[in-house]
Design a protein around this nucleic acid. Structure first.
Lengths: 187, 187
DNA sequence: CCGCTAGAAGCAAGGATTTTGCATTAAGGT
DNA sequence: ACCTTAATGCAAAATCCTTGCTTCTAGCGG
């Protein structure tokens, strides 16, 4: 009954993963995602193409990996003193980042190369985590607050739906209106 | 000063498009989407691969085309006598179809091979059209009814978000709850 | 500290896919 | 009926993907 050396996150494998991810980001910026190929990435990363194919299986799975990493929030949401302001600010920033051309590209990539649905779930978990911070903070202040699932249904889902299906005409006002509509309903 | 014969929707082109679409549907059913290749489709359709590459550019764009066609509603929503019943029935059927494995595959295909966002917009337009029928009918009965955009935000978007990002645990009850929550808010 | 084991990467050949230039066909307009 | 031109067929060339085998190295036990 051995430990479980099934994976080797440290050492050479880690260096290769890092090099490949960096190569993807650089090349996407240089030649654009449509012109991106696996051999190109491999060469830039100083690796053979077969290594990339064996570890990621596919260009779209590799892009999905990179996309999920870039969609991870860097900082916790700002504390502006009350729930309405916190949620509005978070929603506006979320919409701004996600509706931009690179943001939409990352979302699509994350969904695209996603055999088991794990990457899409990860993106949703990131948003849920940020929202949970905001709501927990509000509860600590004694403010009435909806639960995370409700915020996802009422704020995140509408924004994401429009980003994916109707990318035109998205403004910060829309995010603000969603939050207002939710909180006005008597949380 | 010629008209503008920039496109030729009739005649041979139409036959080729039909043959290729049919070939895609048949082969997806036979060998599965992951094993699908452009040369395979071309052979089945009685066409050369270069024709497919020139017209669609890519396997995922072709799949996107086919997916949008299959996502078009076949019949108008049922008339059950009142808005709540109509909307609930429509939402439950929508969720059932879209959250099934083939439904999810079509949605993903439609979104992912979509350079200009036209196909995603088409899917959204289909849903909006169906909802409009339901709401117009309700207005004809004198019932108070929300507008289409509100139904999309409150019912369609949450379902679609969960289908794409969290495919587990979707039940007809969820669709029903969304509709109830919307109509209870005083339309 | 030293060897052992197995997962991960390199290499290269083979096969499949994608691209591209040129010839041919057939819509659609005059 | 003819002309123009988009669309297709054909085939060669380039590129990409797969795969069997070898080599390297991280992690582990002695």
């Amino acid at each position: 009954m051995s430990r479980r050396p099934m994976v080797r996150p440290g050492g050479r494998s880690a260096r290769v993963q890092e090099a490949v991810h960096t190569a993807v980001r650089e090349l996407v910026a240089e030649v654009g995602r449509d012109a991106l190929t696996v051999p190109q990435v491999a060469t830039r990363a100083g690796v053979t193409p077969s290594t990339v194919y064996r570890r990621w299986g596919d260009l779209k799975e590799l892009l999905s990996d990179v996309a999920v990493e870039r969609l991870r929030p860097e900082t916790p949401p700002d504390d502006l003193g009350n729930l309405s302001a916190d949620l509005t600010a978070w929603a506006e920033e979320f919409l701004d980042e996600m509706s931009s051309p690179p943001g939409r590209a990352y979302i699509r990539d994350a969904l695209l190369g996603d055999p088991d649905g794990g990457n899409g779930g990860q993106c949703s978990a990131y948003a849920a985590e940020q929202i949970d911070v905001v709501l927990t903070r509000a509860a600590g202040r004694g403010e009435p607050a909806p639960d995370v699932e409700t915020v996802i249904d009422r704020v995140v889902a509408p924004m994401m739906y429009r980003i994916l299906f109707r990318p035109d005409g998205l403004t910060p006002t829309y995010a603000h209106r969603l939050v207002t509509g939710l909180l006005a309903a008597g949380a």
